[in-house]
C-alpha cells in the first residue's frame, strides 16, 4: 500500500474533517438546506458567504474570494467554493488552484441549477430567456429593477430587454408563493412565463464525499469539478 492509499484509508475511517464552503450570497438558502439534508455534515462544514452583489462586478469576484481564503483557508482541511465561473473568465479558477479548492462546475448558477444540457436546450430554443432562481424571484426588485436602474430610468427598459422573450423560473423549491411572484415579475416585464422545478442538486457537490478525506477527492458526483486534486505531498 503506498503512502497515499494509507493516508486515504486512515482518513476515511477518521472523523469527518473540516470543510469551508465559501459561497455566493445568492446561494445562502440552498447551501444551508443542503447541509441540513446531511446532519452529520453540519459540524464539518463552515458556511461563509460573500455579498451577492459582486455579480455585477465579476472582475472583483476572484480578488474577494482570494482575500477571504488567504485569511481563513489554513483553518480547514478542504475548501469548496460555491460559485460558477460567474464571468471571471478563469480568474477565479486560478485562485482556487492556489488553495487546492474546488468549485461547482458550470458557467453560472442558472447553468448548474438547471444542468448544462437543460440550460443549453432552453437557450437554444429561445435565446431571449431571462432566468430566475428562488433568490432572484425574492430579490427581483432590488437586484433586477433597482440594480439595472429601471426604477429611476424606466425608459432604459428596451436597452436591456429588447431582445428578451421569456422569463424562465428555475425553481429550487416548489413554493407556490414564489411561483406567483415570478409570474408577476414576468408579467411586469411583458415576457412570457415558464416554470421549471430544478431543485438544489446542482449544488450537491458542496457536501460531496470528498469531505471525508482532506487528502483525496473522490469524484463521485459528475458535477464536481476536481480543479486540483489534493495530493498528500
Amino acid at each position: 500500500m503506498d503512502k497515499q492509499e494509507q493516508q486515504s484509508e486512515a482518513t476515511t475511517n477518521r472523523a469527518i474533517s473540516k470543510r469551508l464552503v465559501l459561497g455566493c450570497g445568492a446561494l445562502v438558502h440552498e447551501l444551508v438546506a443542503l447541509t441540513r439534508q446531511t446532519p452529520e455534515l453540519k459540524e464539518a462544514i463552515t458556511l461563509q458567504c460573500l455579498p451577492a452583489k459582486l455579480h455585477n462586478t465579476p472582475q472583483l469576484i476572484a480578488g474577494e474570494v482570494e482575500k477571504h481564503l488567504s485569511k481563513n483557508a489554513h483553518k480547514y482541511d478542504d475548501i469548496f467554493v460555491a460559485y460558477g465561473d460567474c464571468g471571471t473568465a478563469g480568474a477565479l479558477d486560478a485562485v482556487l488552484e492556489k488553495y487546492n479548492a474546488q468549485r461547482v462546475t458550470g458557467a453560472h448558477c442558472y447553468e448548474f441549477f438547471a444542468g448544462s444540457q437543460a440550460y443549453e436546450d432552453i437557450v437554444e430554443d429561445q435565446l431571449g430567456s431571462f432566468f430566475l432562481t428562488d433568490y432572484l424571484v425574492r430579490n427581483f426588485d432590488r437586484l433586477v429593477v433597482e440594480g439595472l436602474g429601471l426604477d429611476r430610468f424606466p425608459e432604459l427598459f428596451d436597452a436591456y430587454f429588447k431582445h428578451y422573450t421569456q422569463m424562465v423560473y428555475l425553481a429550487q423549491t416548489e413554493s407556490v408563493e414564489l411561483q406567483e411572484m415570478a409570474k408577476a415579475h414576468a408579467e411586469s416585464f411583458g415576457l412570457e412565463y415558464k416554470y421549471q422545478f430544478v431543485g438544489i442538486n446542482g449544488l450537491s457537490a458542496v457536501t460531496s464525499p470528498a469531505i471525508k478525506s482532506a487528502f483525496q477527492i473522490e469524484v463521485l458526483d459528475s458535477s464536481v469539478q476536481p480543479i486540483n486534486a489534493h495530493s498528500p505531498a
Binding site: 455585477n56 429611476r152 436597452a159
Partner: peptide
Amino acid sequence: DGILFVPEVLKCAA
C-alpha cells in the same frame, strides 16, 4: 473606475 454604473452609462449613451 467604478464611479458610474451601467444605468448611468446607458443614460449618457442615449
